[in-house]
Design a protein around this nucleic acid. Sequence first.
DNA 1: GAAAGCATGTAACCGGTTACATGATTGG
DNA 2: CCAATCATGTAACCGGTTACATGCTTTC
Lengths: 196, 196
Amino acid sequence: MALRHAVLAALLEGDGSGSGGEYSGYQLAKAFDIGVANFWHALPQQLYAELTKLEKEGLVAGRQVVQETRPNKRLFRVTEAGLAELEAFAATPSKPSFIRDDLLVKVQAADCVDTGPLIEQLEERASVAEAKIELFGKLLRKMRGELDEAEFLRRGERIGPYLTCLRGLALEQENKEWGLRVAAVLRERRAVHAER
Amino acid sequence: MALRHAVLAALLEGDGSGSGGEYSGYQLAKAFDIGVANFWHALPQQLYAELTKLEKEGLVAGRQVVQETRPNKRLFRVTEAGLAELEAFAATPSKPSFIRDDLLVKVQAADCVDTGPLIEQLEERASVAEAKIELFGKLLRKMRGELDEAEFLRRGERIGPYLTCLRGLALEQENKEWGLRVAAVLRERRAVHAER
DNA sequence: GAAAGCATGTAACCGGTTACATGATTGG
DNA sequence: CCAATCATGTAACCGGTTACATGCTTTC
């Protein structure tokens, strides 16, 4: 039961554009897709359900916003109780991080299956990673504003998302590099195989 | 429903020590802990259940081994049908990889919670990562035997597990580096905060 | 005119986690 | 003597995924 904490942590950021510390379910889902997906994956339905639960427990507070040209929405912010919950969570020992990756399963079996489709998927993965690398680069620049990184990390106001984004960036760089390298290795072996 | 494929892929390796391509449930659980955990996480109960299911479907074959000094066990190997299943799986598009990490959730909220316990956890995480780095280094050396890496990747027989292990190594190096860096950043900020 | 974006959910199902259960042998 | 290792499961519960449901507005 830790989706709740991921939601609370994401909600702290609000959307920056204005009221600060507020997200609708829809906006939250988008934020998850971009920044939070590096360390927590969740579907929109889960988020809507979790927000409802958190509201009942008083950990977030929602307010209705009536819109004319758009459907109405509810904006949520973390309450005092929510903060306390996060605080408590931050002090408990962390579970080991946990990964699931189809593509790695396939590479594990690379000696026994046709590597053609694998090479394709690895290169596809690398190009997705490259797109994320660029995105994260932009996000980081935006967050740190005019300060350089060292300065920002020393005196910036909200460094949490910056630090997790750095992690995401490193992960995707690793993803790209590894994917291209493995694809190259498998190609080379296909060539050697074909020679004989 | 992809645990089955992770099990099949892991089973392909057997345990090296002897009969090749055979694991008991118990051994499989250990293999998951070491090599496979980098890209797939599963509890022993799941593995026992999955092996039973796979056997019913004919994707693996089990044989009973009676032992006197130890409890009896069943050793499983991948069948032709199992290989075909893996082959088919390898050719389908991969789901995006999926991560869950408590510690990153906490770092995301670092601006709003006490960073003391966070720093501890980050350093703990880094030292766990270091242990894994050493372990993977040994595993890689063992797998490649007397060949150097480039040579092994060109002509080695079973490179699948080697390639996934390389990924695990890179991941843990990244983990360690990031953990130490973030811990240092948070420490520095505590110091600055204390000054005022 | 079609597709993408805004906005929020419900319901059924299935996979994963937690807790429980057993019991002999070997090493520190 | 206690802990760890070998060895295999069952059962209840809960969280996550898949599929379904709606409907208006903006952009291409």
